[in-house]
């Protein structure tokens, strides 16, 4: 089936099998490998992207469900050489260790701040409950998100 999906501002027209998962389409067909596959069961959030501005787990969506949608992946966050303020906050606050969960964390955190611009620490922790860090580096991840929020970015 033909699908037309806009990712990071570029519209891609592709032929996909209906059973193709969105994350595989993004990674394997379009070559955007910043979005990771972790648990593959919608628990870990490594595959989090934005669909029409809201976070979603791309391992639990079919590519055909995103036909016509406007997606953002981690590759679409920085503008030119400038990191997105959330990426910058993760860098400055040591919000990553191995880095595997980071793309999903950044996407979930930016979606969360879109809905709650001035969160408490507890709200950040709840807002990121769908994203797991196997390094258990949560403290600095939460610190990064709070830092980004405090800068109003």
């Amino acid at each position: 089936m033909e699908v037309q999906i806009t990712i990071n501002g570029t519209t891609h027209t592709s032929e996909v099998e209906p059973r193709t998962l969105l994350v595989h389409h993004i990674r394997d067909d379009l070559g955007l490998t910043g979005t990771n596959v972790g648990c593959d069961t919608s628990s870990c959030g490594a595959c989090t992207i934005h669909i029409d501005g809201q976070s979603a787990k791309s391992c639990t969506l079919l590519a055909v469900q995103a036909n016509g949608a406007d997606l953002t992946t981690i590759e679409g966050m920085a503008s030119g050489d400038g990191l997105h303020p959330m990426q910058q906050a993760f860098m400055e606050n040591h919000g990553l260790q191995c880095g595997y969960c980071t793309p999903g964390m950044v996407m979930a955190a930016t979606s969360f701040l879109n809905e709650n611009a001035d969160p408490s620490e507890a709200e950040v922790r709840e807002g990121l409950e769908g994203n797991l860090c196997r390094c258990t580096g949560y403290h600095n991840i939460v610190k990064s998100v709070l830092d980004c929020a405090s800068k109003g970015a």
């Binding site: 959030g45 809201q54 976070s55 979603a56 787990k57 639990t60 979606s111 409950e129 994203n131």
Partner: peptide, 9 residues
């Protein structure tokens, strides 16, 4: 239910 990303869908 689930987590915020799940609740978006």
């Amino acid at each position: 239910v689930g987590d915020p990303s799940v609740r978006h869908r």
